[in-house]
Nucleic acid binder design. Structure first.
Lengths: 249, 249
DNA sequence: CGGCCACTTGAAGAGCGTCAACAAAAGTGG
DNA sequence: CCACTTTTGTTGACGCTCTTCAAGTGGCCG
């Protein structure tokens, strides 16, 4: 892990701007936050389950997953994180990490000391609420994952995840015409969906065979968005996409 | 739904005291909150998915579930709520409810107008953080449900839920010697666990047959807590039961 | 007593997991 | 640049967990 000091929380500000409108004071406070940037290679753990971190991380570039290990050695990915996400905001209030964060690609991460984040919250109630809202939306996504894994068959489940991913990436400008980078192996997709790698593979063949998606070398594309949404039983409401969100058609 | 006006947020204060240390000013502010109490019968919906409520609810007595409907008509329960919970705090920040709240038993509910909750947050940053922490723990529980449903077989899954339920009820003094009220039908348990009623029934027989639990007329008892924990692959860490009193100034 | 709801049981089969082998791609070192 | 290794993707066969359907039992309340 290589870190360097930087000033100016550009991407963080853009993220918050999607949650609330910032005034000049708030923007200045954010801009003066002492920040560090760290770079992680694919497969590296950014934070480990059980850690008691003294800082929060925000994803600047790259993709990560949050996962938990179960007794028999299995692993469940409970969320994917994309640029703009602050995956462990919870560590501000819950001492011990309940998940491990792992880089899926080369990833640039912003580190914010808890101390600084708390000072920022004390300075601006609105920023506090913006952070809180961020964690609430993460919770809404987790609930939808419970629904997805609990109720939907493999085909619907995977289609739903693809819709969710494209919709979230679109908001941060990382999906173009239902096409985005989704650098996940079939094994990891299985760990996220509660399915075996073999069954993921067959499910993907079905989705491809129906002409709904292509997914090669980490690039995912939905060919018929409406149909994919329908197959995936996907309604983006739970994502609470920012007010300037343009509804995908 | 019958409502009446009350003053004094006793149970709410007790709940917050578990999240954060309150000072006298804060206790006074809470005590002066204008509150209403509503009573719901079993099966009644308290808030409906898609609603845009102007108030939050806190459970005083009784049990509720939060559930989402999927396209094919199925239902997934994403959480159970017990006295002391504030199941829809999210509505303070996310306009539209992503779940329906349903009373499982006769339930007494405290209603807090958003307006009042917001004023309270503005008065005390520490109360804001306490509410935020409450939602973070709810998120941690949702993540564990993803793990439970995604990775564990029926027996482990149900055992895990029983452990979680007993552990949570114990904190609010509603479990005595691993014995508690758990007024849920097998059908609803199936909706929570992503399993059919038939398979829930057989799983319960297995748990009973192993002498791990009894569950009759809504009263759940763990006979060998340690063994049940082991069968359920249960580690209570994610519940953040021990208040680690994150220092907020 | 009758009706309803929750629980129970059996039988058959679907969906998905596991195992094992192989193919293709991507990384690695000379 | 090529040979090697490792990782990721693909396929077939088989079997287990869980679902579905259908029938039946037991308790509770009007």
């Amino acid at each position: 892990m290589v870190t360097s000091f930087v000033h100016g929380a550009g991407p963080l500000i853009r993220k918050l701007e999607r949650l609330i409108r910032l005034d000049d004071d708030e923007r200045r406070a954010l801009d003066q936050l002492p920040l560090r940037v760290a770079t992680f290679d694919p497969g590296q753990e950014i934070v480990r389950q059980g850690d008691k971190p003294q800082q929060c991380v925000a994803v600047l570039e790259g993709f990560c997953s949050a996962s938990k290990i179960v007794g028999d050695g299995g692993r469940q990915i409970v969320s994917f994180h994309i640029p703009g996400d602050i995956p462990d905001l919870q560590s501000l209030h819950v001492a011990e990490m309940d998940v491990s964060l792992t880089a899926l690609t080369q990833t640039r991460i912003l580190l914010i000391q808890h101390e600084d984040a708390r000072r920022l919250c004390a300075q601006s109630l609105r920023i506090t609420h913006a952070f809180w809202r961020e964690t609430l939306i993460a919770g809404a996504i987790a609930k939808e994952w419970v629904v997805n894994i609990g109720q939907r068959d493999a085909l619907t489940r995977v289609a739903h995840l693809f819709c969710e991913t494209i919709a979230r990436l679109d908001v941060v400008g990382l999906a173009d015409d239902y096409r985005c980078h989704f650098p996940v192996t079939q094994e990891k997709l299985g760990e996220a969906m509660g399915l075996s790698t073999v069954h993921i593979n067959r499910t993907l063949q079905e989705l491809r065979g129906r002409g709904l998606i292509s997914w090669e070398r980490g690039v995912l594309e939905a060919h018929r968005w409406e149909d994919l949404q329908q197959v995936g039983d996907f309604d983006p409401g739970y994502l609470s996409l920012a007010p300037d969100w343009v509804v995908l058609r």
